[in-house]
Design a protein around this nucleic acid. Structure first.
Lengths: 354, 354
DNA sequence: CGGCACTATACATACGTATGCAGCGCGGTC
DNA sequence: GACCGCGCTGCATACGTATGTATAGTGCCG
């Protein structure tokens, strides 16, 4: 066995000519310096037991000395794995998706994956390509529209993905969402239970599963109690602060004036609360407001929003588990998980005035 | 010229045996089907003018028919570019960094880059490797500590990066930050101008440039006006809601009770506002509160936070421009940009009571 | 002392794209 | 009619790592 002393003095491979002094060292450079072959370097660094301990140590020391860092590009090409997961989000800048990203990042971190943030773009002309070009091992779709063809396209290509939060009907894909219909029904029941008859609603986009199902659940439960939701008492808009903010003024102008307003999510509800503040409407004395999601902000003292809580951590954990399983076993049967939601009583829902 | 009819019937390359029917097609497959060589496919798809129009069209059609998508892995290895930029953020879950990420993502999108979110982790043992392994073309550091060795290490390796928001002293690196000292001084002057003498402060971490400089600027300006900031009247903590929330109760218990509190950033200020609400302290009648950053939330009616505005869009644009320039020209002299900040008067700063 | 099993290493090659360079064919010019 | 130039395409190879297989070396047992 050769002593671990000075590396064999081999002339430069001359790959780049004379002045490429600051090229990043590769496993070949390490191999040369350590007096072993390139594959041995690869195996040594990956802890392959077939490499002798002494050799492994020598390779490690050499790598350290040269400041060698394995190229993710080479590895990725060779292994066909990138260690990256894409997260498709339409609406960065929305606190809800922020919390979602945070939770997703946390889960991905634990499984040693990196998170790439992708936005879908209006049409999907070449956007699809950016998803399936191999730069990620799979994607999480969080803001899918009901009529989106993306899930079907990805299924066609057998590209691993999971639907999170928003789902799409009739697609045999992995998904994890919350029981939106039941959650919204719970809210309706609570409003009725607090004596509200004149009720308003700010719904989300009907081309999203969350927007649609929360509306369905809310209306169904009101129907059961014989309460009609008058068209003038409803508004609709994107899941944004602005939507709630703008809707409140109009809703308060209708007669009979609603004593409670259901908001399709917390962000809308917080917009509504801000608008109420601007109009000097006291919540909940004059107006009850209820949201959906239970984002972190909802519990702040200035809001104390009564809402329906969904377990974002659990939802993200499930989604990532599904996705990683799909990557490992492309042929496993798809699973649809639906998590339960529960009402969180805070301070924006009170008995109807009068 | 061969007619564009059926492709030459060549037996399968047999690369994967019999049953690899669902392998993703490569440029070789397209070449075979279109009756050209692989390099021609590459050139045709990249719009190389040296490819004849008829050939280009045939290749495009074939690629379309096969559902070919160029492998980002192969391309990345060959070109030594990944088209990805890493963003290192310590504290996802903080609204400020969320807005930062949103702005960064927007800028990156425009230059056709993808954003990878990276967290530094406690020690930097092998974390550095994940930055320089070639999976990104450069990184944006947003939550660097003053004593961090990361920037120096990256400089050593000549790996492209830019410091955003937080900077580090004595490192010849590209950076873009805001005039924290001047901004904080402006606030101090405003407090004094509103007749406040008994002043409290909730500072950020002193091992961050933002935390340190905002403290320096604030203290300096108070000094000029002969106002002493008593140690009992100051608190310190991370840039988090919790910090402001917790600090307020203690500050209000000191005598003389402060009539105004400076908060090192808006997130802390909003925590303070929530705590004041919980304690039934009226802002600004009983207590003035001022923040720093002007995040979106600061303008909400429930807060109406008086704060110092920094132009996040501009800051991110500048940082990305610097980074991309560095990637293109590694040897260009580093630039340090400092953006101005200005006071935004809203409703949480009023004349001192009495 | 020969052969066998086993260990540690090297060799060859695959992963998929991009690009410098050579070569081929065609048309024009003198 | 020969030569030259140009437009288009193919050939060869590089990018850096991982892995299946062959091989050299070692020790043990009969």
């Amino acid at each position: 066995m050769r002593p671990p002393g000075p590396p064999t003095d081999v002339p430069s491979r001359g790959r780049g000519g004379a002045t490429d002094g600051d090229r990043r060292p590769t496993s070949h450079d390490v191999a040369l310096a350590a007096g072993v072959s390139q594959p041995t370097v690869s195996r040594a660094l990956r802890g392959d037991p077939s490499v002798a301990e002494a050799t492994r140590q020598r390779v490690l020391d050499t790598a350290q000395a040269l400041g060698y860092v394995p190229s993710e590009r080479g590895r990725s090409l060779s292994t066909r794995r990138s260690g990256r997961i894409g997260v498709v989000v339409e609406d960065l800048g929305n606190p809800f998706y922020f919390e979602l990203l945070d939770a997703l990042h946390d889960r991905l971190e634990r499984s040693d994956h990196r998170m790439v943030v992708l936005t879908p773009g209006r049409g999907d002309p070449e956007r699809l390509e950016r998803l399936v070009d191999g730069s990620t091992d799979g994607v999480v779709l969080t803001t899918t529209l009901l009529d989106s063809e993306l899930p079907a396209r990805l299924l066609d290509r057998r590209f691993p993905f999971v639907l999170l939060n928003r789902i799409v009907d009739g697609v045999a894909a992995d998904s994890c969402s919350v029981a939106n219909i039941e959650g919204a029904a719970t809210i309706a029941a609570a409003l009725v239970g607090h004596g509200h008859h004149s009720i308003g609603a700010i719904f989300g986009p009907s081309n999203t599963s969350t927007g649609r199902d929360r509306e369905i659940g809310f209306r169904q439960e009101l129907d059961k109690h014989g309460i009609v939701l008058r068209p003038e008492s409803t508004r609709r808009g994107p899941f944004a602060h602005e939507t709630g903010h703008r809707a409140i003024r109009g809703l308060l102008a209708t007669r009979p004036r609603p004593t409670a307003v259901f908001c399709a999510n917390d962000v809308i509800a917080i917009g509504a609360l801000n608008a109420a503040r601007a109009l000097d409407i006291r919540v909940p004395d004059q107006l009850s407001i209820v949201g959906f999601d239970d984002i972190a902000m909802a519990s702040w003292e200035v809001f104390k929003l009564t809402t329906v809580r969904q377990d974002l951590q659990e939802m993200c954990k499930t989604a990532i588990d599904l996705l990683l399983a799909r990557i490992t076993r492309p042929d496993r049967p798809p699973q649809q998980h639906v998590l339960q939601a529960r009402l969180v009583h805070r301070a924006t829902l009170a008995r109807a005035p009068g």
